[in-house]
């Protein structure tokens, strides 16, 4: 109820100003607007230093934004837009790298490292437990107890 009242108050407040301004790219469907924002952040401006097309003021970024808007308006899906761009500007145009034997390492290497480290820690614990010299350990324990 309270939220409803706040909404009403907001609508009243907003309507008290002369007239509302319009968004540059308008969508009836909020999901499409969301998709548009997402795609323009994921696509890379091909001639800029390192910017997505949402952030860049370059003409090409402007054109690509307009193109994304047109394609979405035509009912194209997310994948279709990305394929459209990649067929013209190559894999470079998307900040999402393609999964190929060469790029697979992006995901594999961190995982291998973590798994390897876990195995290594568990293994070395076992070895240490076997090898430990009881006398030296007792001495170390005494020293450490002082902590």
């Amino acid at each position: 109820m309270k939220r409803f009242l706040i909404c009403v108050a907001l609508i009243l407040a907003a309507s008290s100003f002369t007239h509302a301004s319009e968004e540059k790219y308008q969508f009836e469907d909020p999901a499409k607007r969301e998709l548009f924002l997402e795609l323009t952040q994921e696509l890379r401006c091909p001639m800029c230093q390192n910017q997505n097309i949402a952030d860049s003021d370059a003409m090409i970024a402007n054109d690509l934004r307009r193109k994304v808007y047109q394609l979405l308006k035509q009912g194209k899906s997310r994948e279709e837009v990305v394929v459209y761009m990649k067929s013209r500007y190559g894999d470079f145009v998307s900040y999402k790298p393609p999964v190929t034997p060469a790029t697979l390492w992006l995901w594999l290497l961190p995982v291998i490292f973590v798994l390897g480290a876990v195995v290594f820690i568990v293994q070395s614990r076992k070895k240490a437990a076997v090898k430990a010299d009881p006398e030296a350990l007792a001495k170390a324990e005494v020293l450490l107890e002082k902590d």
């Binding site: 091909p46 001639m47 003409m59 090409i60 054109d63 690509l64 193109k67 013209r88 500007y89």
Partner: peptide, 12 residues
């Protein structure tokens, strides 16, 4: 509409 240069992958 600069559509064709886009089709050609022109960046500038």
């Amino acid at each position: 509409y600069r559509d064709y240069s886009l089709d050609l992958g022109v960046t500038g």
